[in-house]
């Protein structure tokens, strides 16, 4: 293993923060979802990396589960996007602010 674990962690962090930033900045549902995917990928990276660090297969296993769940979530999300588009005609997240207070 040539890459030190700390580097990997830093990369993962950066990735996570990038995802977070895109969530915070973007106003489109799809783009926000992309941000989430990036965050999840950061988690996956850490899992796989530490799996190698600890020499255990658990992390990789988890990463597989994660991918499966990501896929399910995305499927649902896209269905919802279509539904939203039909009902509201927009995908701007701040257009949905009727319930408040």
């Amino acid at each position: 293993m040539n890459v030190p674990f700390s580097h990997l962690l830093i990369i993962a962090f950066l990735l996570f923060l990038m995802g977070l930033a895109s969530i915070l900045v973007r106003r489109n549902v799809i783009r926000v979802l992309i941000g989430v995917e990036i965050m999840l990928n950061a988690a996956g990276l850490v899992l796989v990396g530490s799996s190698a660090l600890w020499n255990k297969v658990d992390g990789q296993l988890f990463a597989v589960f994660l991918m499966a769940i990501e896929a399910a979530e995305v499927a649902l999300a896209l269905a919802l996007v279509i539904y939203l588009r039909r009902r509201k005609g927009t995908l701007n997240i701040n257009a949905f602010n009727e319930m408040r207070g």
């Binding site: 977070l20 969530i23 915070l24 106003r27 926000v32 997240i93 701040n94 949905f96 602010n97 009727e98 319930m99 408040r100 207070g101």
Partner: peptide, 17 residues
């Protein structure tokens, strides 16, 4: 406190940060 509940998703997402 109620005013925090803006109803806007961006506020809610920001709360995570």
């Amino acid at each position: 406190v109620r005013r925090m509940q803006t109803g806007r998703l961006s506020t809610y997402l920001g709360s995570f940060a």
